[in-house]
Design a binder for these strands. Sequence first.
DNA 1: CCACGATCGATTGCATACAGTTGGTTCAAG
DNA 2: CTTGAACCAACTGTATGCAATCGATCGTGG
Lengths: 233, 233
Amino acid sequence: MATRGVSVTNKLREALLGGEYAGGTRLNEVDLADSLAVSRTPIRAALSTLAAEGLLEYRPNSGYAVKSFAAKDIEGIYVVRANLEGLGARLVAQQGLSDLHRGLLHKVLTESEELQNVEDWNDEVSDVWRDLNDRFHNTLIEASGNSHLAMMLRKSRAIPLLNQLKFRWFDLGTLARAHDDHCQIFAAITGGQVVRAESIASEHVYRSGQRIIEHWRKMDTRKPVAAAKARAA
Amino acid sequence: MATRGVSVTNKLREALLGGEYAGGTRLNEVDLADSLAVSRTPIRAALSTLAAEGLLEYRPNSGYAVKSFAAKDIEGIYVVRANLEGLGARLVAQQGLSDLHRGLLHKVLTESEELQNVEDWNDEVSDVWRDLNDRFHNTLIEASGNSHLAMMLRKSRAIPLLNQLKFRWFDLGTLARAHDDHCQIFAAITGGQVVRAESIASEHVYRSGQRIIEHWRKMDTRKPVAAAKARAA
DNA sequence: CCACGATCGATTGCATACAGTTGGTTCAAG
DNA sequence: CTTGAACCAACTGTATGCAATCGATCGTGG
């Protein structure tokens, strides 16, 4: 088993990404320590780590607060992410796929294909698709062999609430389109179509971002209230 | 004055970026605490932060070690950085420069122009040019208004030893070429030449990366020795 | 001579006590 | 009623002691 510090970090990260704390919420060390049944020491370690990861904001002598993202921030993040995923696809197309990674990607696509037959959208389908989508993108980046790129993308994906939004609000039509994009990216890569691989991958992510931002804007109207209340508390 | 934790973090970060610790060196908490005249607590906070920033590697129950970068890593980082700087230039070209940022960039270029008249390359020139170069790139990214992009680039630039290498090994010819690139990027941006701005900026960084990697390879032969020795100590 | 295992030193992990800072509240003066 | 300053409570910052873990060394058995 890992140290308490590490496991607290993971628990907190999950909670933050799951959107359990509203943006702007101040995190009290003793409360966290009590609720997680550890002392303040591992809590502080976790908070400092998560701040460096960009999920929290730190103010000396004041503590840590949950970073809040406005629609504009999400837009900026997705512009970057689209670029980076495009770069990843380009690199893979250039240097070719190893048998291992080709197999993994093919498996994802096969399983995604099966998902096309479902009749209506529900939470279970959403979870399965999220897993498949993550696997596709992660495998692709891993295949690029660029660990720094992988790290950057990991950070670009770590946005609170995002996973919930992204997949709960999906529908079968969007799913079909996304799956088709994946297939086209895969085809472009195996066919050595470097520019095309980059374009499709980039556009695929960008489009996904547009959907998110649209929904995010709807939430932004009532969010400042919660944030302000949290800040006041 | 900031807390000890923060100032220790800054001191250590500077030391790491300055290349004071060989890659692979294990950082002993009590030694650091003694040499910086603080207790282990702020040291631990700093280490955890720097690990999350990617300058150190953490292994539970074993501690922190200075991350070492092979030539391949540098290459990967520069591929990403070239793409991101290109993106930044493109964004700025698209949305136009504010008066403030246009002024700042113009000032940098004017000062750089003066630097073209120096007769030979020395440490002072190197320092001045490093400052000008940093200001140009930082201002450009700031002008894009994308804070996430700025954060990513900050991380892509934070590589130990890099600043030393980059500018000590420069020469007047390379300086002239780099300055010219900056001018062209500026011209493309003010002229709204979106694609051109992106291309030049990206290529400008990529080329700089090539130079670094070349020199890095020369060091890599004797580096593993130092790293192994440090690991043993 | 080699392989395996126990022991020991060194180092990190964690909890806790205490010090310092912040910002909010209260009280008094204008 | 407003303003300001002193006060206070709550929280974070730091030091330190002890527990737990790891790796190396030494010893023992094959």
